[in-house]
Design a protein around this nucleic acid. Structure first.
Length: 242
DNA sequence: CCCTGATTCGC
DNA sequence: GCGAATCAGG
């Protein structure tokens, strides 16, 4: 198998979606996990947390593997405003939503630019040869900020429910996920996550998961080939095979 | 053992 | 450029 444009595209997509190399490999088929990893690196895709180099707590313990004769560490510029960053000085703010069960949306705190960030930009005369900023890779592949450029952390979005735990009043008498059983039609009405998402709930056609009407929708006779409409494009490259 | 991603190196 | 072999942590 070769890396066609389509396969590369799919690799990028699956990789950035967070699939593991193995998953991507057998999703694509015809390639090994190693091939996927190798290709991903060659494409310059963001690396994901690797079990191998997950921690980078001790910068000292790096054996002299560099061919490059490490350039003399830059003399600390006379920056009174930049206190020596103490490692482990910046605890991540705790998630603000604690335990309360309400579903009220939360405004993300405005990214306060209290800290004079972007130390590199204002280099005045010689902006050439920007000093390489040493960054560590966090879980998920993000680049950690250096202590000097900390912004207030943006809290991740609170977890969403696919099905509202507290059914809104408008579906109080409708068939919810918990009402499903062998005797009622399981045809979904609306979309999961929407406030009025529910199921048909009519008496099901015996032996089928749906009522007679929805069986008619679910099980359609095949049209002759020449009369068929081309299938709509699948959202994510088709069903997973497994 | 299994899994993971990173890296190396012959092709 | 490719990917098997290898490494190394979970």
């Amino acid at each position: 198998m070769s890396w066609t444009d389509e396969r590369i595209e799919r690799l990028k997509e699956l990789w950035t979606q967070g699939n593991t190399a193995s998953q991507i490999a057998d999703e694509l088929g015809g390639v090994s996990r190693n091939a996927v990893i190798g290709k991903a690196h060659r494409l310059g895709l963001q690396s994901r947390p690797s079990p191998v180099k997950a921690n980078e707590s001790a910068p000292a313990a790096q054996p002299a593997r560099e061919v490059e004769p490490a350039p003399a560490p830059q003399a600390p510029a006379p920056q009174a405003a930049a206190p020596a960053p103490s490692p482990a000085a910046a605890p991540i703010a705790p998630a603000p939503w604690d335990e309360d069960e309400d579903d009220t949306p939360r405004a993300a705190p405005a990214p306060s630019r209290a800290q004079p960030a972007a130390p590199a930009a204002a280099s005045g005369s010689t902006d050439a040869a920007p000093q390489p900023i040493i960054r560590s890779i966090g879980p998920g592949g993000f680049l950690r900020q250096t202590p000097g450029e900390q912004q207030s952390p943006i809290p991740p979005a609170p977890p969403r429910r696919l099905v509202p735990a507290k059914p809104s009043p408008e579906i109080a008498d409708k068939t919810s996920l918990l009402d499903l059983n062998e005797k009622v039609c399981k045809w979904p009405v609306g979309h999961p996550g929407e406030p009025d998402f529910h199921f048909c709930g009519a008496p099901s056609n015996p032996g089928f998961p749906y009522c007679v009407q929805h069986c008619g929708v679910a099980y359609q006779a095949q049209l002759p080939r020449r009369d068929r409409r081309p299938p709509p494009p699948l959202p994510f490259g088709g069903p997973r095979i497994r």
